[in-house]
């Protein structure tokens, strides 16, 4: 991996993020960073299916919700550690994604998108009316003596590192996925389904694989969210706006790239927090308007997102300096 000169830069950024909590005393900034990591994780999860395999889902909150509710309910009803609940949630969301994906991947393009919106909404309505999981009121997670086993901590630093760890796992996974045949198959499906089939790729199977990976990371994010805020309801873990956000993050950052969603989250999340903080309640929808504007600008001017700018810069440099050993693609 050290062949890539940019791995040094990535390692450096990661090192800075590791020591950052020692430098940033204000919990507000830590809170923002935790949410940035979480949203980068979610954006990266969506990116596996939407960016690499090209299957746009606008109902991904469903898997986030499954993750949040699984760990919460298993803890409340069976006293299981949220860590176990997280893995159960991941398994559950993978199963649900398989059950839904099998019929849904038979429809294409806009129809697929519409189906995912419908499924997201169905889940929202279902959970809002399901009394066992708290219905519209939601569920509180009781405060327990803090510790790693119960996934509860005092202060934000532990959450910061766990979020960073989750994100790192997802990035490493995506990195290796991109290098393997899976990444190539996903991208082949995105570029041209008939070509993919003519090359022996069972497109339904690989779309389902992409969705399964995507759903698993969404669910892990859901559990983290539940344990971080210790309160969940359909409004917070299953809303349509979350489905939209996790799709906008990689679009902004760069679809089908490993680090695009991270960049997207770092740009988008502080932006909306800043707008909300500076305009108060009246600025509630303004951040969404600005998202929309940004997306429009990027869709027209730079469909490859911020990563597109960066890779172009790198390519430009590489050709300018005639780097002979530019064997690696710049597509990290």
């Amino acid at each position: 991996m050290l062949k890539n000169p940019y791995s040094l830069l990535i390692a450096l950024i990661f090192a800075v993020l590791l020591i950052l909590p020692a430098l940033v005393a204000q919990t507000f900034y830590l809170h923002i960073l935790i949410l940035v990591f979480l949203y980068a994780l979610l954006g990266g999860a969506w990116n596996i299916l939407g960016g690499y395999a090209g299957q746009v889902s606008l109902g991904h909150a469903l898997y986030f919700g499954i993750g949040a509710y699984s760990s919460t309910m298993l803890m409340l009803e069976a006293g299981l550690s949220p860590w176990i609940g997280m893995f159960v949630g991941m398994l559950l969301s993978v199963s649900v994604s398989a059950i839904l994906g099998y019929p849904c991947f038979r429809i294409k393009g806009h129809y697929f998108v519409i189906a995912t919106i419908a499924l997201g909404e169905i889940a929202f309505v279902l959970f809002t009316n399901w009394q066992w999981v708290g219905g519209a009121v939601g569920k509180h997670i009781p405060l327990l003596p803090p510790g790693l086993a119960v996934f509860q901590f005092t202060g934000k630093i532990a959450y910061y590192y766990i979020a960073l760890f989750f994100l790192a796992v997802q990035l490493v996974f995506t990195w290796f996925m991109q290098k393997s045949y899976l990444g190539y198959y996903f991208q082949a499906i995105r570029e041209d389904e008939d070509t993919a089939r003519s090359l022996g790729i069972n497109i339904t199977r690989y779309k389902m694989a992409a969705m399964a990976f995507s759903a698993a990371f969404m669910a892990a994010g859901g559990t983290f969210y539940a344990q971080y805020l210790l309160y969940i309801d359909p409004e917070s873990v299953l809303p349509n706006v979350l489905s939209t956000q996790v799709c906008l993050i990689p679009i902004l950052g760069g679809l089908g790239t490993v680090f695009g969603p991270v960049i997207g989250a770092f740009v988008m999340f502080p932006l909306s927090e800043f707008i909300r903080a500076s305009l108060g309640g009246s600025g509630n929808a303004l951040d969404l308007i600005i998202y929309g504007l940004l997306i429009m600008i990027f869709a027209i001017a730079k469909p490859t997102g911020i990563m597109g700018f960066i890779t172009e810069l790198i390519r430009h440099r590489a050709t300018a300096s005639k780097a002979a050993g530019s064997e690696e693609r710049a597509g990290f």
């Binding site: 190539y184 991208q187 570029e191 008939d194 070509t195 090359l199 790729i201």
Partner: peptide, 17 residues
């Protein structure tokens, strides 16, 4: 029907996999 956003090598690699 090239896999347009992939390089020539990557196109062939998809087949080779």
């Amino acid at each position: 029907r090239p896999l347009g956003l992939l390089s020539v090598l990557d196109n062939v690699l998809v087949g080779a996999f």
